[in-house]
């Protein structure tokens, strides 16, 4: 662009960029659009030799059927219940832990942090067998408690490490001032550190939520009562029974995707913002 001869090259560069961008967008978006499109189509437009992306006669029948005649609403509420409680528990436990790791240098700190990172990599298949036996002996199979306990623990490595990162960014001087003013350690934590790291907490909470919202293997293993199933398991069993009824299946899948779509949108904005910058400068 600096000299006229490279004008050609710049044009070529933009052509390549836009072709690549179009391909990337198509592959990223098309399957999702196809899911939405199928969910609004009547059966007649699904089993056709010439499929269309925009339904000719869009209908809400699939959603009506899924919401009115199936267990999907129940599965959805179960998932919401488990995921919200998991998130709350995980954030409470993780923010305490992360504060301990961020503000104190105590013997055993580094090994504990490395262990937390390490357990995150464990294959769930290793844990699920003994945990299944324990849950069975405690009569916790077919309860949401079994999932709450498991999910909260599995989200801890991520939430502890994320929150530790956010807490590390908050200047210690702020707490030290509060301690001098007669605040207790716990008070400094709840009154100063937590409010300042609100965005970090929101971000970690969303990751915890999405982890619990997505989880399939434990939910399938620990729960087989229809009325207790969570969305991933419920959707799979629904799929087993209605294999070729793609329209209601896609409607259910869209409903399943909405919460994680909304939360992802929130994280995006929160992670983009500067974190402590405002608090210190302002």
């Amino acid at each position: 662009m600096r000299n006229p001869r490279s004008g050609h090259r710049a044009l070529l560069k933009y052509a390549v960029i836009y072709v690549a961008a179009a391909a990337v967008m198509f592959i990223s978006l098309f399957p999702f659009l196809w899911m939405i499109s199928t969910s609004f189509k009547p059966t007649s437009e699904t089993f056709t030799r010439i499929p269309r992306l925009i339904p000719k006669n869009p209908t809400l029948d699939n959603y009506r059927m899924v919401l009115g005649e199936t267990m999907i609403p129940k599965y959805f509420l179960n998932s919401l219940y488990v995921a919200i409680l998991t998130t709350a528990l995980s954030i409470i436990v993780a923010s305490l832990g992360a504060y301990g790791f961020s503000r104190f240098r105590f013997p055993g700190r580094s090994p504990a942090l490395i262990m937390i990172l390490g357990v995150q990599m464990f294959p769930s298949q290793v844990i699920i067998i003994p945990l299944f036996i324990v849950m069975k002996n405690l009569a916790l199979l077919n309860t949401h408690k079994s999932l709450l306990v498991s999910y909260t623990t599995f989200t801890l490595p991520l939430t502890v490490w994320m929150l530790k990162g956010f807490f590390d960014e908050i200047p210690r001087e702020l707490e030290e001032a509060a301690l001098i003013d007669g605040c207790s350690k716990l008070g400094a934590f709840t009154k100063i550190v937590l409010p300042l790291s609100l965005q970090g907490i929101v971000a970690s909470a969303i990751f915890a939520f999405i982890g619990a919202w997505n989880e399939f293997m434990f939910a399938m293993t620990f729960i087989n009562l229809e009325e207790l199933k969570t969305m991933p398991v419920g959707l799979t069993s629904f799929f087993g029974r209605f294999t070729v009824e793609w329209n209601p299946l896609m409607a259910a899948s869209v409903l399943f995707t909405i919460p994680s779509l909304v939360f992802f949108a929130l994280v995006q904005r929160n992670l983009a913002r500067g974190l402590v910058a405002g608090a210190v400068k302002g």
């Binding site: 990223s28 399957p31 999702f32 399939f216 969305m231 991933p232 899948s253 995707t257 994680s260 992802f264």
Partner: peptide, 12 residues
């Protein structure tokens, strides 16, 4: 757009 496949739950 690139983020969309990540957002959809694995089972869905």
């Amino acid at each position: 757009s690139v983020l969309v496949p990540w957002v959809i739950p694995r089972v869905a």
